[in-house]
C-alpha cells in the first residue's frame, strides 16, 4: 500500500468530521499508509474458528431493572441545568445548535 490516495483520505476525514488542509492530507496519506502496512502483518495469523474478544475478563450483559432512578446514583450525577450551562451556546435551559440545513 505505502500511501493512501488523497480521495481515500478525504472520504475518511469527512466520515470523522475533521477538516484537513492540503498539507495535512498529504502527511496523513503517507503516515496512515505506513501504519496500515505494519498492521497488515495480522494477515499472517490464522484466526479460523477463533471467537473475537467481546469482554476481556468474561463479563456479559450487565443489566439493571428498567425502572426510573429515584435519585442520582451515589449522588454522582450532575444536574441537568449545570450540564446545559456547559454548552458553548444555550437558551432557556436548552442546548442551542447551528442550523442543520444550509441556505
Amino acid at each position: 500500500m505505502g500511501k493512501l490516495s488523497k480521495k481515500e483520505i478525504e472520504r475518511v476525514a469527512s466520515l470523522a468530521r475533521i477538516k484537513l488542509d492540503e498539507e495535512e492530507k498529504e502527511k496523513m496519506a503517507s503516515e496512515l499508509g505506513a501504519v496500515l502496512d505494519y498492521i497488515d502483518k495480522l494477515k499472517e495469523v490464522n484466526t479460523d474458528g477463533v471467537e473475537p474478544i467481546a469482554h476481556i475478563t468474561g463479563m456479559e450483559n450487565i443489566l439493571r431493572k428498567d425502572e426510573p432512578m429515584k435519585k442520582p446514583l451515589e449522588g454522582q450525577a450532575a444536574d441537568a441545568a449545570k450540564l446545559v450551562k456547559m454548552a458553548p451556546d444555550s437558551k432557556d435551559n436548552f442546548v442551542k445548535v447551528k442550523a442543520v440545513f444550509g441556505e
Binding site: L42, K43, V45, T47, V50, E51, P52, I53, A54
Partner: peptide, 8 residues
C-alpha cells in the same frame, strides 16, 4: 481480525 488475534 484484531479482536480475534486479541483472543489468541
Amino acid at each position: 481480525k484484531a479482536q480475534k488475534v486479541r483472543a489468541l
